[in-house]
Design a protein around this nucleic acid. Structure first.
Lengths: 237, 237
DNA sequence: CGATGACTTGAGGGAATTCAACCGTCGTGG
DNA sequence: CCACGACGGTTGAATTCCCTCAAGTCATCG
């Protein structure tokens, strides 16, 4: 029998000790459900830039991110890329209408996920309507984010796009408990550009201009917002 | 007591006679469930350009479209508009994470919806996990469409956008049983432009060029595709 | 039949891209 | 120890695709 997952990368889940449970889909589970969930899930680790899964593959698993940041993206045949989102701890990757992944996901930094077979997951949710409701809430939240991103991609200027991204990203980091002054940007400029429908040069130029205008300071691995209200105004406009 | 809905516009649902049931969320309901659903829902009619609901309003209702086409859109404070989708018969408008509408919807042509109070709807689904699963599938399908639209908005050229729109729209019409040669386009050029993140002039020019190049013929209320494979190639590229 | 609204067409401009060079950091091996 | 290439990021100049502005066409309707 071929093991596709090496033992040192996969381990049994310890749901009771899960640090992101309250953020994740698992918050809807009681003690008994959690024990069963633990039985059917595995923790898996991914190194930076490693693929969690790839668009077009048969979707055998669903994932709940427990640590790190992942980029979710779609490609055109000629290589053009659109990043459709960044997944943070607590995010669920498994809302899909077909049996194949419709987008790809890879680790940006060091990532840990809780992985379940799609089959077991489907069986698990069927009996638990409160859990199903939770999945539904997650799907609804994702959909709303996607719709906001459509507005950004279709109707905002480069400047507004970058400002909106920073404000939105800061907010998401705050939601998972990262309230540091400096906004961590683990993804590359290229990732940001592909998320905003811009080129890497435009993202770079815009950030440098923001810095010249004293709206922020570019630091290693992120930016420090000096004028959050100005950024927020740009994002809303 | 104030009646917000005039009697001649609202009527009791006749779910058993519903022509779009197999396409809609209600396909997951058996006879008994359907009778209960009928009890809590009402049919409402909207004239062209009338608003079904508006972004920011408290979301008291969920809707299932039974006839006509609606545009779903978001606005920026300065009036820029992004159409995030067109709703067709069978489509469900009610997957939302908050108690306020996050987008607006209005009738393009003559529209009929099946409307339920959000409260009654929530209560209804809680007991019916198979129905909840169906809602989930609808949400997943919506999400996938939204992600494809992000790719289009962020990374496709004007030409590709228009071609993709025509191909995708034709496919959606086919799914609801409209397989006519001519692709009906009940929405205005402005609606299409706002859907594709373009200006009305660019949409118009692109369509005229397609016509000059014998890919299609522009007719009243739609287009006739002469070279579907060429359009499909443009859409995929 | 003039007015109105949806759409088309043309000319010119500009925001973002493309192309290209350059900078700084980091890991590697001579 | 430092030369070196690789890589991510920044900056500059030229180009282009799409937008803006403006005018014109066509069908509909009071």
């Amino acid at each position: 029998m071929i093991r596709t997952i090496s033992p040192n990368r996969a381990s049994f889940g310890r749901c009771s000790a899960c640090t992101v449970r309250s953020l994740s889909i698992c918050n809807a589970l009681d003690q008994a459900d959690l024990a069963e969930f633990e039985r059917i899930s595995r923790h898996i680790h991914f190194a930076p830039n490693e693929a969690l899964f790839t668009a077009g593959q048969i979707a055998r698993s669903v994932h709940s991110l427990t640590a790190g940041v992942a980029r979710l993206y779609k490609l055109l045949p000629d290589g053009r890329r659109q990043v459709i989102g960044f997944a943070l701890p607590g995010d669920f990757l498994g809302v899909a209408p077909s049996d194949r992944y419709s987008f790809s996901a890879d680790a940006i930094d060091s990532v840990t996920v809780c992985r379940l077979s799609r089959e077991a997951f489907t069986h698990f949710i069927e009996q638990r309507s409160h859990f199903l409701m939770r999945i539904n809430e997650f799907a609804a939240r994702e959909l709303k984010l996607a719709q906001e991103q459509m507005l950004l991609l279709g109707r905002r200027t480069a400047e507004e796009k970058v400002a909106s991204f920073l404000v939105g990203w800061r907010q998401r980091l705050a939601q998972i408990g990262d309230e540091r002054q400096t906004i961590a940007l683990p993804m590359s400029r290229q990732d940001i550009a592909d998320y905003l429908g811009l080129t890497i040069e435009t993202v770079s130029r815009t950030l440098t201009r923001f810095e010249r205008e004293k709206m922020l300071i570019i630091v290693a691995g992120g930016v420090r917002l000096l004028d959050p209200s100005r950024a927020a105004a740009m994002a809303a406009a």
